[in-house]
Simulated assay, not measured.
Amino acid sequence: MTKKAIYPGTFDPLTNGHLDLLSRAAKIFDRVVLAIAESPSKCLLFNLDERVALANQATASLPNITVIGFSDLMTNFVRKQRGNIIIRGMRTMMDIEYETQLAQINRHLMPELETIFMMPAKSVSYISSTLVKEIALHGGDVEHFLPTKIAQEVRARLHP
């Protein structure tokens, strides 16, 4: 049986912290779906198609990663993908509280769903998409936090 996991999130933008978790998950699971949520309630830098395209470029060297955009309830998306495992990243105590609550809600909606929490490598554990956008907005260098192409796109979007 193929082991498949789904790593959902907004990924606006996809950071080196996300890539750390993805590359490690790719070693554990036969297939990993990077599920990019449309998230219309958030103030996003990139639309869904742009985030999917950027993520496809950033994950091209990981052959067992598939990038898919979605606008459904996450548990409905997981069912459509015939999955029962999701991966969630945890960096801080605040993440632990939020992610625990989210895992419990998801399990209520889909009792067979398992959530696997992964901590990013120490070297990228402090990176968040929100902070990276804030740094870039004020002209700071984001090259260390993002894949090169994504860093270029963030700069171009914020400083045309």
Results as ranks from 00 to 15, higher is better:
Leu45Met: 14
Leu54Met: 15
Pro63Asp: 13
Asp20Ala: 05
Ile28Asn: 04
Arg91Lys: 11
Asn16Tyr: 03
Leu48Arg: 02
Asn64Thr: 14
Leu73Ala: 11
Phe70Val: 07
Tyr7Lys: 11
Ser123Asn: 09
Ser125Arg: 09
Glu112Asp: 15
Asp20Ser: 10
Gln152Met: 13
Pro120Leu: 00
Lys133Cys: 05
Asn106Cys: 07
Ile127His: 02
Ala37Leu: 04
Arg79Gly: 07
Gln81Pro: 00
Met110Pro: 01
Lys80Pro: 01
Gly83Met: 12
Val142Cys: 15
Ile96Met: 15
Arg107Pro: 02
Asp141Thr: 09
Pro120Glu: 00
Ser39Val: 03
Leu137Ala: 14
Thr66Met: 06
Cys43Thr: 13
Arg88His: 10
Cys43Ser: 14
Arg31Asp: 14
Met74His: 01
Leu45Pro: 00
Ile87Tyr: 01
Glu143Tyr: 03
Ala25Asn: 08
Leu109Gly: 01
Val132Arg: 00
Thr100Asn: 14
Ile150His: 06
Ala121Asp: 15
Arg91Asp: 06
Asn47Pro: 05
Val154Trp: 04
Ser41Val: 07
Asp49Trp: 01
Cys43Leu: 10
Ala121His: 13
Thr115Gly: 09
Gly140Asn: 08
Arg24Trp: 07
Met90Gln: 14
Ile150Pro: 05
Leu44Val: 06
Arg155Leu: 07
Ser61Leu: 08
Met1Glu: 10
Lys133Tyr: 04
Pro40Leu: 10
Leu102Thr: 13
Asn64Ser: 12
Ile87Arg: 03
Met94Arg: 09
Cys43Gly: 07
Ser71Gln: 13
Leu44His: 03
Thr130Leu: 07
Phe70Ala: 05
Ser129Leu: 02
Thr92Gln: 09
Leu73Lys: 12
Val142Ile: 11
Ile127Cys: 03
Arg155Pro: 00
Ile96Gln: 07
Gly140His: 05
Gln81Asn: 11
Gln104Phe: 13
Leu48Trp: 08
Ala156Gln: 14
Ser125Asp: 13
Ser128His: 02
Pro160Glu: 11
Ser61Asn: 11
Leu113Cys: 05
Ala151Tyr: 00
Asn47Ala: 05
Met110Ala: 09
